[in-house]
């Protein structure tokens, strides 16, 4: 009788075990991700300043936020940065992938060179580009010392151009990764179709335009999703490269949120800006994940 109960317990344990094993991760995720999201969203409706406080103020933080020129600047910068960053990375990545796909001799070595920036921290990338672009010691100074005395390149110190240096460094860091995604896509394309089209006399240009690039749609989609979420999260690079300056020329929503929350003691407004960042990413990620997971069923 006792044996029977024991065996029963064992089978029940076996059926419960998978869920038991999963539960710590689920609990962590529910509390630290979704619970925290709810808490931050809640804070964005409160009068929190230095510390969380629970006086309800409705949409006041949001209306204040949208009236701040600082926020407006960071959104405009984000629009400039994200559109250039995504476009350049995509075209550069696709171009390099197509070129690398032409039975290139040292392909492995070139791939390694294009990809290694991905392994670096944005702080390292930021430091290297910061000093290279610095007019006092970097490119401008070098060119002048080489005899081109009228050479000027002060973008990183120039309010109107500093945002493009952030684009440059960010493209440098991630375009190789996009290249790898497209290269994997190119290697998956069926050669038989290409050969058939070649027999019909199609030019290389037409092969790429009509057959190959349309087949890379999934790679384009993944690249877009990954790049746009990276763009919205960009923080370390700006901190290391320009510190948000000169002035506010390279402030982005992520740096805005950080300074309002932790140095200006405007936690309510900080939480409101974080909520808007989350919404933006959710609008891109949720449809993508939904489609991916449904497909895979």
């Amino acid at each position: 009788m006792a044996m029977q109960a024991n065996a029963d317990f064992k089978t029940r344990l076996q059926t419960l075990l998978p869920k038991l094993v999963l539960s710590p991760s689920l609990a962590l995720m529910l509390v630290f991700v979704y619970g925290f999201i709810l808490f931050s969203v809640y804070l964005s409706f409160t009068d929190s300043r230095l510390l969380p406080s629970y006086g309800w103020v409705g949409f006041e933080n949001y209306s204040k936020l949208w009236r701040l020129s600082h926020w407006e600047t960071s959104l405009i910068n984000m629009a400039v940065f994200a559109s250039l960053y995504i476009t350049i990375c995509t075209f550069l990545g696709l171009g390099l992938a197509i070129f690398l796909d032409q039975k290139i001799r040292a392909e492995g070595m070139l791939r390694t060179i294009y990809l290694y920036p991905m392994a670096l921290s944005f702080i390292v990338t930021g430091t290297a580009w910061k000093w290279f672009l610095d007019p006092g010691i970097g490119l401008e100074n070098v060119m002048q010392s080489w005899g081109w005395t009228s050479f000027e390149f002060d973008w990183i110190k120039n309010r109107d151009f500093a945002i493009y240096t952030v684009v440059l460094a960010a493209v440098w860091q991630t375009s190789g990764f996009v290249m790898a995604m497209f290269l994997a896509g190119l290697r998956g394309i069926d050669n038989e179709i290409l050969k058939a089209a070649q027999m019909d006399g199609a030019s290389n240009w037409n092969l790429y335009r009509r057959i190959i690039i349309p087949q890379l749609r999934p790679a384009f989609l993944s690249a877009f999703v990954i790049l746009s979420h990276l763009a919205i999260k960009t923080f370390d690079l700006v901190i290391a490269l320009t510190g948000g300056g000169p002035g506010r020329a390279t402030e982005l929503p992520a740096t805005f949120m950080y300074s309002y929350t932790f140095s200006r003691n405007q936690m309510g407004i900080g939480a409101a800006s974080a909520t808007i960042m989350l919404m933006t990413i959710a609008a891109i990620m949720i449809p993508y994940l939904y489609a991916e997971l449904r497909e895979k069923k």
Partner: peptide, 25 residues
């Protein structure tokens, strides 16, 4: 699949949204 979807979405959130509660926690 829904649980997995929730886990996956958690990879992509902007971490700014968890900074304040995380500091408290």
């Amino acid at each position: 699949t829904i649980l997995f979807g929730l886990m996956l979405f958690a990879c992509f959130i902007p971490f700014q949204i968890v900074l304040i509660p995380m500091a408290r926690m």
